[in-house]
């Protein structure tokens, strides 16, 4: 698995765990018969995926997660969806690269397949 795929999986697992641990959301979903159970399997999967990451990306991911509660921001119309700054063309991943950091907020940028650079 590439660093990009590993990071995307890690981010999805963190979003899922965030939802499972949110007390208000959990209580409301439980009342509707849609409550969460034990998150330990997802936590284990998350730990495994985190270990697979290249140390450089592990550092950036953990730093942005601690600071913002979410480490990856998608890019839409060359705007970082984390801090909403317009990204310069030079921020797009070059050939042979697939990941970049937002120079404004430090989140890892996810340039979707359809996103023009």
């Amino acid at each position: 698995m590439t660093s990009r795929e590993t990071l995307l999986e890690l981010h999805d697992l963190d979003l899922l765990l965030f939802e499972a641990r949110d007390l208000d959301a959990g209580a409301r979903l439980r009342r509707a018969g849609l409550g969460f159970g034990d998150p330990s399997e997802v936590e284990k999967a998350r730990a495994r995926v985190f270990e697979q990451l290249d140390p450089r990306w592990r550092y950036h991911y953990a730093r942005a997660l601690t600071r913002y509660g979410g480490a990856i921001a998608s890019v839409r119309a060359r705007v970082c969806q984390g801090c909403f700054i317009s990204l310069p063309r030079s921020a797009a991943p070059g050939s042979g690269e697939s990941l970049t950091l937002c120079e404004s907020c430090g989140r890892i940028l996810y340039w979707g397949p359809r996103e023009p650079s």
Binding site: D12, L13, A20, L34, D38, V42, A45, Y110
Partner: peptide, 28 residues
């Protein structure tokens, strides 16, 4: 991701409906 959520949380409250869900970078 949806399978992981299904394993952890119920998405069928009964009465013949199911509401699986996902919040993800994969969703545009």
């Amino acid at each position: 991701l949806i399978a992981r959520r299904e394993a952890m949380a119920s998405s069928a409250p009964g009465k013949s409906i199911a509401i699986p869900s996902a919040r993800s970078l994969s969703v545009i």
